[in-house]
Nucleic acid binder design. Structure first.
Lengths: 196, 196
DNA sequence: TCTTAGACTTACCATTTGGTAAGTTATCTG
DNA sequence: CAGATAACTTACCAAATGGTAAGTCTAAGA
């Protein structure tokens, strides 16, 4: 039961921080959820901020293993974008808290966010180069690559993690709707990216 | 100094809740920022939750007056979308906290969010009908209207309110970049929406 | 001038929060 | 078996938090 506790804490923290937020989650709540005492958490992570740092590291790993395949694929043109969007939606359905934490950190910045920030920087850098190549090759419409990616990133993350807005639109955020949202997002991006 | 205090509290709360979040903002901080005591806040708003409700109401008003013109315009086709996006970016530059609060509420939901939720519901309902008409008229590409709007909403709000991601892309979130982002977002949406 | 009401402030308070200190228990090692 | 070490728990604690109660000051009305 020993070495597992650390991972259980990280798992629970990821869910709590990613879905409810950092300040909204107290160590006491986390401990109660885990059936241990708060001090057990502080034994493994010397402060709440260190716990956040470690949680972010876990999220970076999960993000890497979920999107790594698609982002490093050798697919060309729109197929590669489609792979990435599919992988992102799959992650949003399986572990919404991971994308929630990405959003949280990307908004707040903060000192603990170094790992995620640099991981994202790397992924976005690759993406920029990929998009530029495709534009040069004439497979993508010519737009400013970084702004384009920001729009694509925002659209995908937003669609995948904005259940309340879906409700406001009269859509239930269940699995079927998510599948539909994925399909429509891909069509939307295809239309935006591919020059006729 | 009397009647103004209430509005000053609301202004400061809007900035704090919208940019830092609800749980991350304490009444003591707000009071210190305003140069009054916490109890002065509680005199005007009987609890922190009531303050949030009133703050949301203010945000709804600001949102309405900022986007109302564009959203009720009689412009047709893509021009109307462009007007709306311009108005949104203008709001993002002038009062980022308003969109921040919209995002916060649209994520967390909660009991206090009724006003904003219904305001957004109404705006989105109008938007759905507008998009449907334009599709029928053949001016917009045929996509699922609600999903399309979710993607558009996410892209615009994301681009307008995601400074950390802009930094990760190597863009400084200053006014010039925001103008550029607006132009690129409009081009992106034009490409996605208009069938050739 | 006396009173009343509004707009606060000073003084508290119970609870929650992140964190420390000092045990306790089990396992592993010499 | 002795003792060290890892993995906790029990017992605290100071600061911060949302909120209550009572007092103060000022301006307006009777």
């Amino acid at each position: 039961m020993a070495a597992q506790t650390r991972e259980r804490i990280l798992d629970t923290s990821l869910a709590a921080f990613g879905l409810r937020g950092y300040d909204s989650t107290s160590l006491d709540e986390l401990a109660a959820e885990l059936g241990i005492t708060k001090q057990a958490i502080l034994y493994h992570f010397s402060s709440k901020e260190h716990l956040l740092t470690a949680t972010i590291e876990l999220a970076v790993k999960e993000l890497g293993s979920a999107l790594g395949g698609a982002s490093k694929s050798q697919a060309r043109g729109f197929q590669r974008i489609e792979d990435l969007v599919r992988a992102t939606f799959s992650l949003a359905a399986r572990r919404p808290e991971v994308l929630g934490l990405v959003r949280l950190v990307s908004r707040q910045g903060g000192s603990a966010s170094g790992a995620l920030a640099s991981a994202m920087s790397a992924m976005l850098g690759d993406a920029v180069r990929f998009v530029e190549r495709e534009m040069v090759a004439g497979r993508f419409r010519r737009l400013e690559p970084r702004m384009l990616l920001l729009a694509v990133y925002s659209a995908v993350i937003g669609v995948a993690t904005e259940p309340e807005v879906m409700r406001a639109l009269g859509l239930e955020p269940d699995l079927r709707s998510l599948v539909k949202a994925r399909r429509e997002t891909i069509e939307f991006l295809r239309a935006a990216l591919i020059a006729d």
